[in-house]
Amino acid sequence: MFAPQGPTFRELAVQALSSVERGYDLLAPKFDHTPFRTPDAILTPVSRALQRLGPFDSGLDLCCGTGAGVDVLRQVCRERVTGVDVSAGMLAEGRAHDRAAPGVPRTDWVRADARALPFGPVFDLAVSFGAFGHFLPRERPGLFSQVRSVLRPGGRFVFPIGAPARPGSPGYWTLLAFDAAMRVRNALWRPSFVMYYRTFRLTDVCADLTRTGFDVRLHTLPELGRRPDGSPRCRLVVATRAA
Results as ranks from 00 to 15, higher is better:
110 V>G: 04
27 L>W: 13
229 D>P: 00
151 L>R: 00
23 G>T: 07
109 W>C: 10
227 R>Y: 05
32 D>Q: 05
157 F>A: 04
129 F>L: 01
187 A>V: 00
185 R>N: 07
235 R>Y: 07
127 V>I: 14
2 F>N: 03
161 I>N: 09
176 L>N: 02
121 P>H: 05
113 D>H: 02
242 A>Y: 02
86 V>D: 08
100 A>F: 11
190 R>L: 04
132 F>W: 05
51 Q>Y: 05
77 C>W: 02
236 L>N: 08
143 L>S: 05
95 R>M: 09
166 R>C: 00
53 L>Q: 07
119 F>I: 14
200 F>V: 12
111 R>T: 07
144 F>V: 08
106 R>Y: 05
6 G>N: 12
124 D>Q: 13
219 H>D: 13
156 R>Y: 03
56 F>N: 11
214 F>P: 05
98 D>I: 07
31 F>S: 09
226 R>Q: 01
162 G>N: 02
84 V>D: 04
9 F>Q: 14
197 Y>D: 02
124 D>G: 12
207 A>N: 02
75 Q>P: 14
142 G>E: 11
37 R>Q: 06
20 V>F: 07
212 T>Q: 09
242 A>E: 10
2 F>P: 04
78 R>H: 07
152 R>F: 01
4 P>M: 12
195 M>E: 12
201 R>T: 06
118 P>Q: 09
9 F>D: 15
186 N>A: 07
142 G>V: 06
97 H>W: 13
112 A>S: 02
194 V>K: 06
148 R>F: 01
238 V>G: 11
23 G>R: 08
23 G>C: 11
110 V>Q: 04
172 Y>G: 01
16 A>V: 06
92 A>V: 06
228 P>G: 00
61 D>S: 03
206 C>M: 14
48 R>V: 08
161 I>H: 00
135 F>H: 06
74 R>D: 04
22 R>C: 07
89 G>R: 04
30 K>P: 11
159 F>D: 01
227 R>Q: 13
40 D>F: 05
11 E>T: 04
9 F>V: 10
168 G>K: 11
169 S>P: 11
